[in-house]
Amino acid sequence: MAKSTKPAAAKAPAKAAKPAAKAAPKTAAADKSEKIAKTQIIDMVADKTSLNKKQAGEAVASMLDVVVEALKGGKSVGLPGLGTFSVAKTAARQGVRPGTSEKITIPAGKKVRFKVASTLKTGL
C-alpha cells in the first residue's frame, strides 16, 4: 500500500503546477504576438458566413491556392484593406559563410514581398 500512495502524491503537485505554468505567459505582449492558425481562420469564416466548417475550409484553401499560383506565375495579388503580394527579383550578391568566414556568391532569385494597405497601416 505504501507504494501506491507515494506515486499518487508525487503526481498531484505536478498536475497542479502545469496550469499555473501555462497561465503565466499570458500577457499583453504575448497576446499581440500570437499567430492565428489556418484552422482558426476556417472557424472564423464559418462563424461569419452560412458555410459549415468543411465548406469554409475548402473556400480558404481555394483562396490560398489561387494566391500561391498567381505568385508562382509572377503576378501580384491585391487584397483590398489588407495589402498587395508581389514577386520581386533579387540580384546575385556576395555573402559570408558564418562558420568559416568564407566568401560565397549568393545567386539571383525571386522573393515574395508584401506591401501593407494604407487603410490597414493607419488603423493599427
Rank of each mutant, 00 (worst) to 15 (best):
A88Q: 08
Q94L: 11
K75M: 08
A12H: 04
A24C: 01
D65V: 06
T122R: 06
A21E: 04
A91M: 06
A46C: 10
E58D: 15
D43V: 02
K89C: 00
A30T: 15
V96S: 06
A117E: 01
P107C: 12
S62R: 10
K110R: 09
K11F: 01
T119L: 06
A37M: 11
L79A: 08
T100K: 04
E34K: 10
A88C: 07
P25W: 02
Q40T: 03
S101I: 00
G81S: 08
A56E: 10
G57M: 13
S118Y: 00
A10V: 06
A24R: 05
A9P: 04
K53E: 09
A9N: 10
A61D: 15
L71V: 02
A17L: 13
S76I: 03
K54V: 15
V67H: 03
T39K: 11
T39G: 12
K32D: 08
V66N: 07
L120I: 00
I42C: 06
L79N: 12
K115P: 04
A21P: 01
A20D: 08
V45I: 12
A16N: 09
K121L: 10
K35C: 02
A9V: 02
A88E: 07
D65M: 07
S62H: 14
A70G: 14
T90H: 00
K89M: 00
I36F: 05
K38E: 00
A20R: 09
K103V: 03
V96D: 05
D43E: 15
A23D: 10
P7W: 07
D47C: 03
A37G: 14
L124Y: 11
S118F: 00
K54C: 00
L120E: 05
T122G: 10
V87W: 02
Q55D: 14
I106S: 10
T105R: 05
L64N: 12
A56F: 12
L82D: 06
V77G: 07
I41N: 04
P25A: 11
P25Q: 08
A2E: 12
S101L: 04
G74D: 05
K54E: 10
K72I: 02
V68Q: 06
G57N: 14
A91H: 01
A37K: 07
A14P: 01
A12Q: 05
L79F: 10
A9M: 08
